[in-house]
Nucleic acid binder design. Structure first.
Lengths: 255, 255
DNA sequence: GTCTATAGCCCGATAGAC
DNA sequence: GTCTATCGGGCTATAGAC
């Protein structure tokens, strides 16, 4: 993973420049013609480097997308800063952050499909739950922690700890909808966000009430369990039997 | 879409046999080695047909997946039949159907990522919201309509009409979780299903109450809006400006 | 209408020289 | 770090057998 080490001040090494050039060229081309239609050869050519060199910096075409995640997240963060300093109500903060999210990714909508494509493959290092994506995911989750932190809502500690993750999941759901949203200027997604942010905010307030403690505890425990590392089954072959206990017939997912 | 027309009784035309042979071979290979590692050449060879012939029946490698959807759904439906005749409570019916779903797709878990990958790309004809997938999606939604229909719950008409779609969406969410679930025998997904089916059933009962009419109406209207055809912007020609309206048409009847 | 055989394009990815 | 050369495989095309 050719990772650049930041130099002193604004100085960039040749490698960093080349890497950035290739990435920028790729994103431009993706935006112009979409992901599938953009060939690595075209990217290399337009960037003025050889095909092999492009692969020197990005192990695969999909890895360009990983870099892209980082990019948009930075944009998102930058765009969110103002809202997070100005607003204090949870609803306004969450709404603002969700809107800036949509704003930051809008230019890339036409090749968003590929994003989710890679994102949905658990075997891909690019999927948002993979270790490789962990840094961006954490940074992104951190943003939602901020949404909470300086808001006026009073959230009990047990929930407080889990909530940023839940909000991140919520935001992923919205992105999923957005990807499939072909309406002009994505008004449907905006509509959905407005409606659901309202619900989410109310739900948080509701779940924070003392009376809700039992339900809250039960649900949080479920979440914790679901996240727990795989427990080997009772004293038997610790078969991480994940793969193919092929039964027989039957196929997968339903459209 | 080469759709086979059922012949008299068990008779299959040569073409149907060849088609089925190729598909079955492909699925076997996918299960054995995964999607990416299975080449069209290998499928053709193992099936004893020429490469060209494989492409004669399936326009692309991805199109094999579309056929595969149909297969799984049939399996799911078959496996669900018993539960749907025996159970009457909504919760039991839904739980049963969700479990058979997981059962039907389990053998393909290891390459499920790939399936969903292609399926999730809005530009792909294989994505579950695309027109090409409409038949399977409708059939699948219909199954959830059945879950409701003969259950004891009393659901108001406005909700009744929308509910199968919502249940289908719910089930897609579960599948998405399942895809990323690496726990033995997918116990996490099962756990999640048990917990959420309970919630869903309660929510349906709750939402059906007369007092909830206003909230229900508001939410249903949002859903209707989100599905609506793109409204041309004020005083503009009806430019379908962004192509592909994935209008998730109401596949359900259940009036 | 089904099917074989084969030749070839295109493009993602890799090897190895410089 | 950068290049050239080459491979593997999805996909197309074509010509012809049955």
């Amino acid at each position: 993973m050719a990772e650049e080490q930041p130099q002193e001040s604004g100085k960039q090494s040749k490698a960093e420049q080349t890497r950035a050039l290739i990435l920028q060229t790729a994103l431009d081309l993706f935006r112009e013609k979409g992901y599938e239609e953009t060939t690595m050869r075209a990217i290399a050519e337009k960037a003025g480097v050889s095909l092999g060199n492009a692969y020197y910096y990005f192990r695969s075409k999909e890895h360009l997308i990983q870099a892209f995640y980082g990019n948009t997240h930075e944009d998102h963060q930058r765009l969110s800063a103002r809202i997070l300093t100005e607003e204090r109500s949870l609803k306004a903060r969450l709404l603002g952050v969700m809107r800036t999210k949509l704003e930051s990714i809008e230019p890339y909508h036409q090749f968003a499909g590929i994003l989710f494509k890679t994102a949905a493959d658990p075997n891909s290092p690019l999927n948002p739950f993979s270790p490789e994506s962990s840094p961006v995911r954490q940074a992104s989750t951190e943003l939602f922690a901020q949404v909470l932190k300086d808001s006026r809502v009073k959230v009990p500690p047990d929930l407080q700890q889990e909530l940023p993750n839940l909000l991140w999941m919520y935001h992923m759901g919205i992105v999923l909808f957005w990807i499939h949203d072909q309406s002009p200027r994505r008004w449907r997604t905006h509509r959905l966000v407005e409606h659901t942010v309202d619900i989410v905010a109310k739900l948080i307030t509701l779940a924070s009430l003392a009376i809700m403690k039992p339900v809250r505890t039960r649900t949080l425990r479920l979440l914790a369990d679901l996240r727990k590392e795989i427990e080997p089954l009772p004293a038997e072959t610790s078969t991480a039997s994940d793969e193919t206990e092929s039964k027989t017939v039957n196929p997968v997912s339903t459209p």
